[in-house]
Design a protein around this nucleic acid. Structure first.
Lengths: 123, 123
DNA sequence: CATCTATGTTGACGTTCATCGAATCAAGTG
DNA sequence: CACTTGATTCGATGAACGTCAACATAGATG
């Protein structure tokens, strides 16, 4: 697909977006690059369908769920797959195939890092 | 249109997006409506320019800043104004005019609520 | 091998979004 | 009054996004 020049720097799909990134939003003004990277994570949760899919996975026992368990969000199967991919690219989910089914799992460190961006200790 | 700004809840139309909303994402699957509402807040931070503006305000002494102090993000003045409005509509910022300048301030309760969505106590 | 089921991928389509320039308005200052 | 800061509007443009239908793939099973 070769994304074009919209990203000056790296964008190896799944991995880089997951890097812990930045200090709390309250600590200092973000640089353009930090903002670019962090915005991707927020944007990933900025869609209702993705938010539902994410909370479905996150609230499943063990923090993981089969696609078949969570795909009842009112959109077609390819659309579900598309959104899960986005969440994966943002580093919020990881996936693993086990036999017939594919399981998605929450990446707790990334989610916690996002939380700390917003609610640093004692704020 | 500034009615007495004694307390931090917002204009009629902007109020909905600001309501604290939902349980932690890990607690249970979001309903469509909850997802719709919550996604708006994440989407508001899902843009690099808005993220920079927000962190600029949040990191200013006192959690508030004049537009003139933060508008150096590489986009035109109407665009800055546009993004600040979006952040306001999402409930993340509030604004107040003092003399010549307009000051934007972080709404800590809303930001904290967002943080708790992601990082509930002890997770 | 043939076939079924569960997912991922592709390509297209319409919609929303970010951005701009330029103009204009509103509020406040001196 | 002129000047400044910031918000608002308008039209326009290109990019990004959400969605689906159709196709492709991987594993299980017959």
């Amino acid at each position: 697909m070769s994304t074009t020049k919209s990203l000056p720097l790296l964008e190896p799909e799944t991995a880089e977006a997951a890097t812990p990134c930045c200090p709390p939003l309250t600590e200092r003004t973000f640089t353009a690059e930090e903002a670019e990277r962090t915005a991707k994570m927020f944007k990933a949760l900025g869609d209702p369908v993705r938010l539902r899919l994410f909370s479905a996975v996150a609230s499943h026992p063990g923090g993981e769920a089969c696609v078949c368990d969570i795909s009842d969000v009112g959109v077609s199967q390819p659309t579900v797959s598309h959104h899960l991919k986005k969440l994966k690219e943002a580093g919020l989910l990881s996936s693993e195939r086990r036999g017939t089914w594919v399981y998605y799992r929450v990446e707790p460190s990334v989610v916690t890092a996002m939380g700390n961006l917003l609610a640093p200790a004692g704020n």
